[in-house]
């Protein structure tokens, strides 16, 4: 991993955009990185588009707002359309190909098409497409250690939903297997 990684997670409210960002952020914390997590906030979060900027770095984070991401995680078409041109050359896009029926036309970035929603449903973990995508991102970019990701999942899943820990870990593994 390069010395800093700026990621934009984007999709509909309710897809777990903020949660996926938080799992990534906590993994960075456990790896001893500098980091920031910044959600979009406002009326657009209710059913509309939602996004979240996560920066991991070896140095102090300047602006926590990711304008030109190294990595875009897109979970719906409006988000892909909105941010596809903002990705830096040489960057990458992870998209949920079971929701986004479109190919990215840029050839200066790496695009990973993951049928995340379909995979989650088939594996009995409906609603965890976000974490499946995060698992794929972990495999391709190694932005954190496996140990830190597992610790992060355990930290981020609230105590009241402890049963979800294993489902989230399963989602990571499914993503990593893609």
């Amino acid at each position: 991993m390069s010395k800093s990684l700026n990621v934009l997670f984007a999709g509909f409210g309710g897809q777990g955009i903020l949660f996926a960002g938080k799992v990534m952020a906590y993994a960075g914390l456990f790896d001893g990185k500098e980091l920031s997590w910044l959600p979009s906030y406002g009326p657009e979060m209710r059913g509309g588009t939602c996004n979240c900027s996560v920066c991991l770095s070896d140095e102090a984070i300047g602006s926590p707002l990711v304008v030109n991401p190294d990595v875009l995680v897109a979970m719906n078409l409006p988000s892909l359309d909105k941010f596809v041109d903002a990705v830096v050359p040489g960057g990458s896009i992870f998209l949920d190909s079971s929701i986004i029926d479109k190919k990215v036309e840029r050839d200066d970035i790496s695009v990973y098409y993951v049928p995340a929603t379909k995979l989650a449903e088939e594996n009995g973990i409906k609603g965890l497409a976000n974490i499946v995508l995060l698992g794929k991102m972990l495999k391709e970019l190694e932005f954190a250690t496996g140990e830190s990701i597992e610790k992060s999942v355990r930290k981020c899943v609230p105590a009241k939903k402890a049963a979800m820990v294993d489902f989230n870990l399963k989602a990571i593994e499914i993503g990593r297997a893609q």
């Binding site: 938080k22 952020a25 980091l35 920031s36 997590w37 910044l38 906030y41 984070i61």
Partner: peptide
């Protein structure tokens, strides 16, 4: 401000 209030950091 809204940025510092909403962002998470260690």
């Amino acid at each position: 401000d809204g940025m510092l209030g909403q962002m998470m950091e260690p």
